[in-house]
Design a binder for these strands. Sequence first.
RNA 1: GGAGAGAUGGCAGAGUGGUCGAAUGCGGCGGUCUCGAAAACCGUUGUCCCGCAAUCGCGGGACCGGGGGUUCGAAUCCCCCUCUCUCCGCCA
Length: 424
Amino acid sequence: MLTINLIREKKDFIIERLKVKNFEAEEIISKILLLDSSRREIQTKTDMMQGELNRISKEIGTLMKEGKETEAKAAKERTYKLKEDIKSLSDKLIPVENDLRNEIIQLPNLPHESVNPGHGADDNVKVREGGKIPLIPDTALPHWDLIKKYDIIDFEMGIKLTGAGFPVYKGKGAKLERALISFFLDEGEKAGYTEVLPPIMVNEDSGFGTGQLPDKEGQMYHATLDNFYLIPTAEVPVTNIYRDVILNGDDLPVKNIAYTPCFRREAGSWGAHVRGLNRLHQFDKVEIVRIAHPDHSYESLDEMVSHVEGLVKKLALPYRIMRLCGGDMSFTSSLTYDFEVWSAAQKRWLEVSSVSNFEAFQANRLKCRFKDKGDKQTRLAHTLNGSALALPRIVAAILENNQTESGIKVPDVLVPYTGFVLIN
RNA sequence: GGAGAGAUGGCAGAGUGGUCGAAUGCGGCGGUCUCGAAAACCGUUGUCCCGCAAUCGCGGGACCGGGGGUUCGAAUCCCCCUCUCUCCGCCA
């Protein structure tokens, strides 16, 4: 949510910037400014009347104490009309405030100045690439065949238990999954992130705080009886830890890492390239989250990108880093880098991480603020997060890229965690 | 699930209709003292909105779990909701 101050002060700038995200803001902004000025007008008037009423009430109190009942009664008479006026005016305030808020939350976050305009994945900019694309024979199998061959992930079993997109990991497959989670968490801890293990269901307030609600509720599983949502990412519970919190400027950046299962309904997004592990309703992910000082949040973003890059390097996966164009970026993001790894049998790049700076956009919804030492004023913090990493596509790439005649070679860094070197 | 108790500032904890945004203690911040520190003493100490100054600031309004109500006036009285604790039941 953009702040009303920014909208008041930089209307034209916002309209221009949002064009990068292919968003026409002019109409909404003029509505907002209209509602805002009427809100302030009503506010000022009611405040003045309320002040007057408060004064009279105090007066009545004093008069009563002094036993001047007639005068007290006269003063009471004066309050009746005033009370009525305050009531009718403040009744007008509520719908104006609601309308204002409903308009403001429709505005997406402003893209960072480095973001290119564009409409889709083709307009994303390659920032860096690394690793070597493995040469595998034409007889190499895609991961959905490999998992059957070695009996390590069972989609049919998942269908029996739940439905499509809820695979069962078995034997060395389960072990590999657990190894990756532990590896990612340990790497995060080494980099100074504090681990948290949050609830995987959240309430409505949390869904609103990070921007999933009200618009994207169709993407989350909803436990209607208790009105809880299954999290689509650990970003939601972990960032919401800092909802309604005023942090000490010295404590920034706050760095958390969390493993959680993630749940996505993926309504309407099933198509050609989503076989096997490419898209699931439930999957495992390790997420890094930061609350940063606004003056240093892009340094934080760079550090997070380096961290994720370190992970794919250690796993010896060929990767590339993309800076998303305006049209491909999320509603809430200012700047996003996507990590993609090469999946040798599918001959495709698979997105495995998305690292974003949301600047103050989420923080404004969350009321996540901080105060610098000596300052009287609180300021909105910046929030950031990134996958480090999402498991299924990493598993897909490892399986496909590392397949050999004798089995699938486990990346060296994972062997201490798996206890085996070969899936066969 | 049943019965009862409760929710107050960073924390602990007073306050049951009128200068209460809220006593007191702890903590935090600033100072005195000290070579320095501790102790002691003094001072200070929330958030949001509106208006004016447009930097320090000044004035007004709101906030004592959340929402409604009674009243000239509510932390205090009434209603609803949420959450917490204790006991019983159940249970990993």
